[in-house]
Structures are given as structure tokens and as C-alpha cells.
Amino acid sequence: MNTKYNKVTVFKDTDDKLSKAATTVSNISIPDDIPHGDMPGDKIEIGESHIAKARTIFPLLVKELSEKMAANPYKRAVVAVCGGSGVGKSEIASLLSYLLESAGIGSYTMSGDNYPHRIPMYNDAERLHTFRKEGIRGMVDAGVMNADTVAKIREWQAADDDANKAHLETDTWFRSYLEAGSKGLDEYLGTPNETDFAEVDQIMKAFKDGADKLWLKRMGRDEASLWYDEVDMSEKQVLIVEWTHGNSDYMSQVDIPVLLNSTPAETLEHRRSRNRDGKLDSPFTMLVLELEQAKLVKQAHKAKIIISKAGDIISFDQFQELMK
């Protein structure tokens, strides 16, 4: 006897729960401490704006879930909460999962940040190495490599200032370094070169195929903080993946992408307000954010739900206007 198919009877009242959930969301109280994603050491700080956005998203999410879960023999679906830096992915994914659980719909929040090939310090180093390697190659290809330009690039690299667009105003040859480095970095960020999308997709498929348990990766910030936990999914119907790359074309198993949008100016303002010493991020970090933002914009047409930084549900056309 296939125990997986028997589980369908356990969730036979799912449709009733979903229909009631959308109307009762405003009555569900949110405690100060709720379960959150599975990234080791991840800390979330839920504010009123996160709660307001989650309550706004929830009725639309429930409507989408009704359709997707009805089409799955195990009454299961995968939701991806994606967006740029500082937009509140971890907080809102955790809140949506909590609201589903409160409505009697089992939900688990998984962090996509556990699935790069390298731990954070090595991945950051690989990003920078890729940018610099391709930038130097670009100088060679453009015929601007000489003792003076190499000395200047080394000076800027030592100061972590070699991605600074301001150099274009004084050194026209720098364009070859910046453009080639940016292109190389773009071909690394959010691609299988950086992240094991195949593993994430396999996990999602196993979940939708009725797996009772899943082995999920845990990645901390050092080499000793890498392991797998076996997670009980027998009573879970929704897998929520919170991740910048949750709407990536490299995955095929996401049913409902939810895009938490912010314009580049809003992202920069958030990062400014978050820096305790008042310093801006390095030019290289800003370049990474710009490239990631471009990927989010390119993928946005697939999002089932888009919510603005201000907390308004917007259409794809409205999103395009905001991002101009």
C-alpha cells in the first residue's frame, strides 16, 4: 500500500481551510517570536510593515494555493518569496508560513541561501576574483594594458575601489576593466556556477511528489558549519522558499513566485539606514546589488504576486513603470 497516497485523505479538508483562511487573516494575532527559515544563525526582526505586507499578500496567496494544491495529488505546493537586499524576504516568508499554520495548513520555510556551492566567505571571494579576473582580461582585449594602467588598477584593488564608476570620469581606459568585469560577474551571480539550483529543484519536486521526509542542507559561515538535517514533511502542504533567486529560470518546480519589490533607490536607502557607522557599501557590493536587481527585473514577469516597498499589490505593468 502506498502511504503517500493515503495522506491525501488526511488533507481532505484543505479546500475548506483555504477558503476560510483568506477571510480570517485579520483575526490571526502575530506573537513576537515565530518560527523562521532554516539558515543557521539567521536573525529576523519583524516589524509592523512586514506584518502589514504579509496580511496583504495572504488572501491572494491563498487563492493561488487553492488552484495549485488542487492540481497536486498530495495537496501540496511550493511558494517562492523573492526580492532584493533588505526587502524583508525572511520576515515575510516566516509570517506567511505562520499564517498558513494558524489556518491549519502545514507550512515549512526553507532558505535558499543554504545552497551556494561555497560558504559565504569563499563565495564572496569567488565573486570578487571573477570580477577582477575578467576585468584584467578585458583590458588586454581592449589593448589598454600597460605598466601605468596596471599600477592604477592595483592601487584601486588594494583600496577595494576598483568597481567605482567614478573612475570613468578621469580614466577612459577603465571602461574596459569595468565592463568586462561586470559581464563576468553577471555570468556567475545567480547561476549554477554559484548555486546548486539542481539540488533545490530536486527538493521541491520531492516535496510535491509526497515525500514524508527531506534532507535539507544547512550552511553557516565557516567550514565546520555545513550539514544536513532530516526534516519531517508528513503534515506539511506548503513549502515556502525565501531567496533572492527564488524566481530563477534555473528552477522548474516553483508554483507561486511572490516578488517583494524595491527600486534601486529604495534598496540603497535601506542599506544606508542599516549601516551603523554611516558608511556606504563598497562599489563592488553596489555592483553586485545592481546585477542582482537586473536579474529580478528580468524574471518579474513570472511572479504571481508583486508587492511594492510601500506595501501595495501592483501589476506587472505597474512594476515596469516603477523600475524605469
Results as ranks from 00 to 15, higher is better:
T3H: 14
K4N: 12
V10N: 13
K12I: 14
K12G: 13
T14P: 00
A21Q: 04
A21Y: 03
A21E: 05
T24E: 13
N27T: 13
D33H: 13
I34A: 05
P40K: 05
G41M: 05
E45I: 08
E45F: 10
E45V: 08
G47T: 02
E48M: 11
I51W: 02
R55V: 08
L60R: 09
L60T: 09
L61Y: 06
L61C: 02
M69T: 05
P73T: 07
Y74G: 08
K75T: 10
R76D: 06
S85D: 10
G88P: 04
K89V: 01
S94Y: 03
L95H: 01
L96S: 02
L96Q: 03
L96G: 05
Y98I: 06
L100T: 09
E101M: 12
G106N: 04
S107K: 02
M110P: 00
S111V: 01
G112S: 07
N114P: 02
E126G: 09
R127V: 00
F131K: 02
G135N: 04
G135C: 06
I136D: 14
G138T: 07
M139F: 04
V140F: 11
A147D: 15
I153W: 09
I153D: 01
R154E: 13
D162A: 11
N164G: 07
H167R: 11
E169T: 12
D171W: 09
T172P: 09
T172N: 14
E179Y: 08
G184E: 03
L185M: 06
L185V: 06
Y188V: 14
N193K: 15
T195F: 12
T195V: 13
A198G: 10
A198Q: 13
E199L: 12
V200F: 06
Q202K: 15
I203S: 09
I203G: 07
R218A: 04
E223L: 09
S225F: 00
M233T: 06
M233W: 00
S234V: 11
K236N: 05
Q237E: 03
L239P: 00
Y250A: 06
Y250Q: 07
D255E: 07
P257L: 05
L260T: 00
E266K: 12
E266H: 10
E266W: 01
L268T: 15
S273W: 00
R276S: 13
L280M: 13
D281P: 10
P283V: 12
V288C: 12
E290M: 12
L291K: 12
Q293W: 15
Q299W: 08
K302Q: 10
K302F: 04
K304N: 08
K309L: 00
I314N: 04
F316C: 00
Q320K: 15
Q320G: 15
E321M: 12
M323W: 00
K324V: 13
K324Q: 14
